[in-house]
Write a protein that binds this DNA or RNA. Structure first.
Lengths: 243, 243
DNA sequence: TCAATAGTGTCTCTAAGACACTATGAA
DNA sequence: TTCATAGTGTCTTAGAGACACTATTGA
């Protein structure tokens, strides 16, 4: 029996489409006895001699295998069984981590950012839309990591419905349209511009910097995000068909 | 390093006040090397030889140390560190379980139901209301079990705000006022009768049995609860000051 | 000039919350 | 008869969603 921690670190890449959810993968060592050279979630053993607590394992992994300092980390769930790891009965505590794109530069050739949803198992709902979502062999990860990615993506999507958690994926200084694109990518749904703006401006999370930036059309207001902890809204944000 | 599962099983005892949240404790064996004879959360080791998966450990514990079949079980979180158990580095996967009062009869002299909130650490918020909530020594549990109870109670309260989870604490056949008392106990707050009724009757969870029962005042309608899975509401239920 | 984008005004809809009211039957 | 309790009718409020509109500026 051994225990591990796995980390699903996400970013939104604004350079793909209107912002794509990406996941950090890490290449397993060539001399590893399990899945050598394969890309997988960054993770590792809990070292009982040096890790005082579970959080220390997480911090160590972040430093050694991620190299990027996440803006947010939370525990998702724990998966344990005899089959998930060929080395024997294992338990992993899955963590979800978020980082703004500007702070997400890779620190090693053994890492890569990949489109997160390609590595998540398709849900029953998505499968009904067509069969193109079947797990592609090109996107198979070692162990049960596809399942772990699925759990992390689901957590992220569900939090986007009713919390300010997605702001951890945004730049410290950004515009409301940028934030909306982040939420839309997480929810896989267009949102009402007006409702989204009213909702966020009603919190105290955004401070007008006085600056404006020039885009394709009208200049947009730059806000500074002042988030200390996650704000929970009293209603879910459902979105709609067009706009 | 070893892994355990702990279960916080709750019921609502309608015989105390207008319904009190109670927790199942279990007396540790007299020959245990840690906290012998002390009352604690039911819990135990993950046996890698016989438990195919984590859920099997939970099922085994439910049978051996709880004896009551919960209507609902869910994972809350995992706590792991070097200090929580004197035997060494340990990790426990905390589970929350719910059972209706009528199915909660104890199966052993080594068990007892206790008022759950007496065993939860007071929150910062509650401490502000007065200092009577300091952890009482009479209510100290072994290991970090007071902390685990706190986490489970918090999960339960927060789910009561926006889901139908608390229906798992209710009798299969019960009245709306009974359900409201359950929610009020979990939220520690009075709710609007009208809003509460409208909310629950708008779901398909309650089926009118045609029966009525007689109480202190007007007869009340008995519903049959048909809950398959937890319903999430689109707004939180906040409650109010009086009614 | 025009198309894309940012942002606003105002309407509707829904459910929570407030409050007053009726009905029932045990004490 | 009283009063605690169950249950309803209706108003207000807040925020989501719909839609139309203006403003700005790059292509």
């Amino acid at each position: 029996m051994f225990a591990t921690v796995d980390v699903a670190l996400f970013r939104i890449n604004p350079e793909v489409g209107s912002g794509q959810l990406e996941l950090l993968l890490w290449r397993r060592k060539a001399d590893s006895d399990t899945f050598p050279n394969c890309f997988a979630l960054p993770g590792g053993y809990v070292f009982e001699n040096t890790d005082e607590q579970l959080q220390d394992t997480v911090s160590r992994l972040i430093i050694n295998k991620v190299g990027v300092e996440p803006a947010h980390i939370e525990q998702v769930c724990t998966v344990g069984n005899a089959k998930r790891d060929p080395r024997g009965w294992s338990m992993t505590v899955l963590h979800l981590a978020l980082v703004p794109f500007s702070r997400s530069a890779l620190v090693s050739d053994e890492q890569c950012w990949v489109p997160a949803r390609h590595y998540a198992n398709s849900t029953a709902q998505e499968q009904n839309k067509g069969d193109k979502n079947q797990q592609n062999n090109d996107h198979a990860l070692p162990f049960d990591h596809n399942q772990l990615v699925t759990l992390a993506v689901e957590r992220l999507s569900s939090k986007a419905l009713y919390t300010s958690q997605p702001l951890y994926l945004a730049e410290p200084t950004c515009s409301l349209p940028e934030l909306q694109r982040i939420y839309e990518e997480l929810l896989q749904n267009k949102l009402h511009k007006k409702a989204f703006r009213d909702r966020l401006l009603a919190t105290n999370l955004l401070v007008d910097t006085g600056k404006r930036i020039q885009g394709r059309g009208s200049p947009t207001v730059l806000y500074h995000i002042q988030q200390t902890g996650i704000t929970t809204f009293e209603r879910v944000m459902q979105g709609h068909k067009k706009d």
